[in-house]
Amino acid sequence: MNPSPLAVRCQNVVKIYDTGDQKVTALNGVNLEIAMGELMMLVGPSGCGKTTLISVIAGILDQDDGYCEVFGEDLLSMSNQRKLNFRARNIGFVFQAFNLLPALTAAENVSVPLIINGMKRSDAERKAVAVLEQVGLGARVTALPSELSGGQQQRVAIARALIHSPRLIVCDEPTSSLDHETGHNVMTLLKEVALHKDRALVIVTHDARIFDFADRIAEMDDGHIVGVKGAGLKAKG
């Protein structure tokens, strides 16, 4: 059996933030591989570099050293425009604070990635309604984010991350603003709807209650990957 192709391959990735007075090393030689069809969780204490790592993987932050390849493409060597197009087509985002545009309805929020990719607004919104139905929000397509509960907002965010069929979805603490049951439902949805063999999911989390959903868990500390635990293993809380 052939091994799954790699979605992400990071080698010795270094990122240093220059705050003026001092330099802070956020990533200090990170090595990580994520396969297609895999749900990888990044865990570790605050400030260990998890968010910096998914920012590099998602192509919204350039590393200072090392190599990061996403679907076989070196993000650092891409021009800005190519990187924008790459992100628009290949990456979906789910955020801790949902980051929905408050003035747009659920359907309009979900349609944004398609509009960025050049689809006509009416077609994009039609497709958005279909995806919202898929995540169980078919009845709330015209609701504004302020009219939705936290769980519903995160479902809208998941629909937005899925609508343009990206090959990589990066999630930053997707359940930490939600209660246990809602968080569990959101993870079930992510696993059932978002994850398939042509897509990888990277989730940054502190929430030990959702570790069971991971295929693998990479534990980070002080800018390093200190250990990767395989499927079914529960990381230290």
Partner: peptide
């Protein structure tokens, strides 16, 4: 600004 950031992250030039 955060909303503009989200649009930028999602690929808006």
């Amino acid at each position: 600004l955060r909303q503009f950031g989200v649009l930028k992250a999602m690929g808006t030039s």
